[in-house]
Design a protein around this nucleic acid. Structure first.
Lengths: 218, 218
DNA sequence: AATTATTTTTAGATTTGACTAAAATTAATA
DNA sequence: TATTAATTTTAGTCAAATCTAAAAATAATT
């Protein structure tokens, strides 16, 4: 049984490993969790001895198969709770993360089973991220960053890469949400910014930084 | 801000103080929380320095006004979560306690506000206990233990004193729930047991121990 | 290749919360 | 009231999770 802190480390390391596809460095973990490298080394040893990480001194860590299963269950809980908060308790999508960070550590298989049923077995959370099932299985929708679309091309928003409240509030303000239809009206080569049309209505100018974090499907 | 463990101590001490009406002893707290007296002494000191308990060596502790407010907020959260689990997630009333013990420590005023709204501002939890509001105010229903009723008298179940799964499962089995109508058919002076009729249907024999833990209103 | 810079680990402390064993205090009883 | 019994507190440990500062290992650069 993993503790609260152990689950947080494992989840962060899992995400970093998925992104990079290779071993995860001590400093990367410390940055992600706003902690110090020395603390990370301590925790890495503990998690290795529990079999969820494999680790060689100075060589970074990998998540073991057992670790992946455990991490996916924490992610499953996090995303189910986020879905609950938005779908049932009328939270905005920028308000859910912190609360879900707490709720994801509640230990009760029955609770998660019933919550999943109550929500109708959702497959994606409010940010468009897939929710793993009891076995850790999930399907990603095929997707491309808005940034890569050409003029006149369009797509449906399926995910946002950045989950920060500031970004999500900005998206709210300009009318972008999961499921919105976006068409590229114009692109500025110089800085990578673009003009887009949302749901066939008004147009907006967005920066490259924004268009890289919005992912679409056809 | 109180920690998880501090909140658990405070809540337990608050309950013990309410029951006895006087100062709470170190051993009573240790018994309640299945811990050792030495640990309790440590925690009492910490909670006193935080202003939620008043304490004199060897003299037991009292809950301060600030402590009562804090304790009632934890109790509010516990009972709202229990209500959620039964009303929305189809938990039985004997399954909710352990999970609510975890959920009650989630820190998010917005979450509790929204949960309360979602549940329709319930005034009583699944065991009939009152749910304090944001200000810690609550109303108890006037009630008497079933044990004190005479033959032919009847009442509506409003609370059960014992929340243990074993007791609640027994009540389920014989058809007793919050809101059930119970009539005393016969009483046995010798051992305090009685024969009761539930909802005008079948009759059951129950022991004194059981009838003391079921509370009724008119 | 040798030196410098960066990253990672170790060593030693700190805090929270819990424990055991012994000492101090209060309560009970002969 | 003196002694015994029970309760409570103190003193000293321990584990989890964190930190700073210093040492060790790896990576980068002249």
């Amino acid at each position: 049984m993993l503790s609260f802190a152990e689950e947080n480390y494992l989840k962060a390391i899992y995400h970093l490993a998925e992104q990079s596809g290779q071993s995860v460095s001590t400093n990367a973990i410390a940055d992600e969790l706003n902690t110090k490298a020395a603390s990370v080394t301590d925790m890495i040893k503990r998690l290795s001895s529990k079999g969820v990480l494999s680790y060689q001194k100075y060589r970074g860590v990998y998540v073991s198969e057992a670790g992946k299963i455990a991490a996916l269950q924490v992610i499953r809980k996090h995303r189910l709770w986020e879905t609950f908060l938005v779908a049932k308790l009328k939270f905005n999508w920028d308000e859910v993360h912190e609360v879900a960070e707490q709720l994801e550590h509640i230990k009760s298989p029955l609770l998660i089973k019933r919550l999943d049923e109550f929500l109708g077995h959702p497959k994606f959370d409010p940010h468009g991220d897939p929710i793993p099932d009891e076995n850790g299985e999930y399907k990603e929708k095929p997707k491309t960053p808005l940034f890569e679309l050409q003029i006149e091309q369009s797509g449906i928003v399926v995910t946002v890469q950045d989950d920060s409240p500031a970004f999500l509030q900005y998206l709210d303000k300009i009318g972008i949400y999961i499921g919105a239809k976006i068409k590229v009206v114009d692109k500025v080569e110089f800085d990578g910014s673009m003009e887009i049309q949302i749901d066939g209505r008004k147009t907006n100018f967005i920066s490259k930084q924004v268009s890289e974090n919005i992912w679409l499907t056809e």
